[in-house]
Amino acid sequence: MDLQVRKEQINDWYHAYSNDIYNYIHFLIGDHEQAKDILQDTFLRAYSHYDSFRGDNVKGWLFRIARNLTIDDIRKKKPISYFLDSIPILKSTELSPEKAAMLNESEQELYIALNKLKLAYRDVIVLRKIKEFSINETATILGWTENKVKVNLFRGMKALRKELEKGDFSHETV
């Protein structure tokens, strides 16, 4: 394919999906600057691997690239955390002032609870419940079976509700 056409295609995809993909990466690593870098790498990777794109679900393909790059990044920067499958985005239950300003009280609680979950749960919840991908699309992005998506979503939502309940408990007892 003509490189100019390919470039235009990347630009179109960027305008259509960059915010969604940035949002997803941000949920996985919680860092604005890192998320921006990975977002840029995602589209460069899509450009250089354009020929390997098969099928019609470009959004799912881009998300898969973004996820792989994010996991690579985590693995390089926090190998021990990755090994233990626990990458706490938040060092405490406090949000940065910028994030706190963006979210209302219940969203803050949800965000904190979500970020206490292990990566596999957070990943599947973000894709299914926040980005609203279908089970099939989520399975493709994660490279999992559909059943694994269902089971992890089920366990993840359970764990999320438990975290939220813990939050309630601490409010009541403090």
């Binding site: 960059s18 915010n19 940035y22 949002n23 949920f27 921006k36 979210l103 965000y111 926040i130």
Partner: peptide, 11 residues
């Protein structure tokens, strides 16, 4: 709540 988080972190 999860759905409402979708567009909170915009670039």
């Amino acid at each position: 709540g999860l759905k409402s988080l979708n567009q909170k972190f915009r670039l």
